[in-house]
């Protein structure tokens, strides 16, 4: 369980309050308009923004004061997920050891994961030689080899076209399920949520609603969702 306990986030004049928990396993979508604060919420969970009040716990452990790299989670951003001067293998290897001194076993793990995301044999390439979809796959591979129980996605695939994006979402769901990861993903697109999210929470008016099963939520939209969808 990932919990935000009476958390207040402030950025300038913007404030967001959250008192909410996300279940382990499966995919939770955080949906909201741009500027609603959903990415702010995610950066607080990831450790880039300190809450001005409240605490964040993951599996009972208080992580509020932990640096980002020490939290039991990985995060994928919208862009700049790969170092442009490092090869795919190196970029992925960073997930195993931040100093890249890999053992043979770790190398094997890395190559298997690259293969799992469909990048077999491409380890020597630099990010600039890859398509946007392939870059996303590499970033996903790194998040997977890190093996942290939570995976956060901050509009990670929103720069991709619809077909590629769906492909990545499916890959994400399948691999996350294989590895037993819990996924928390920020999106503004209801289609993303409906495609892979088991439950969905709405960020609106400086508050976060409790996550509800996605299917049920869309079948009988709450007021918050109706406002967001605009019907």
């Amino acid at each position: 369980m990932l919990k935000l306990e009476a958390v207040t986030l402030s950025q300038g004049s913007f404030t967001l309050r959250a008192d909410i928990g996300f279940e382990n396993r499966g995919v939770t979508a955080l949906m909201g308009a741009s500027g609603s604060g959903k990415s702010t919420l995610l950066s607080a969970v990831a450790g880039f923004l300190r809450p001005s009040a409240g605490r964040i716990t993951i599996a009972g452990q208080d992580v509020t004061d932990l640096p980002p790299g020490a939290r039991p989670l990985s995060i994928l951003f919208q862009d700049q997920n790969l170092f442009p001067h490092l090869t795919l293998a190196q970029n992925t290897g960073l997930g195993l050891r931040p100093d890249l001194r890999l053992t043979d076993d770790q190398r094997r793990t890395r190559d298997e994961m690259l293969e799992r995301v469909g990048l077999a044999g491409m380890g020597d390439r630099l990010p600039r030689d890859l398509s946007g979809g392939q870059q996303s796959r590499a970033a996903l591979a790194r998040a997977l080899v890190r093996g942290r129980p939570w995976l956060l996605l901050d509009e990670a695939f929103s720069a991709l076209g619809p077909a590629l994006r769906n492909e990545m979402l499916d890959l994400l769901r399948d691999t996350a399920m294989d590895q037993g990861l819990s996924v928390l993903m920020v999106t503004h697109d209801p289609a993303d949520a409906r495609r892979i999210a088991d439950s969905t929470a709405i960020v609106t008016d400086g508050e976060v609603t409790a996550p509800l099963p996605t299917q049920a939520l869309f079948d009988a939209p709450t007021a918050a969702l109706r406002r967001y969808l605009g019907d």
Partner: peptide, 20 residues
Amino acid sequence: DFGRLSTSLGMRGLDWVRLV
């Protein structure tokens, strides 16, 4: 561009100097 990425991967000190 890479500050958050480096921190989220826990790259620090000399590793950060060498690799980033």
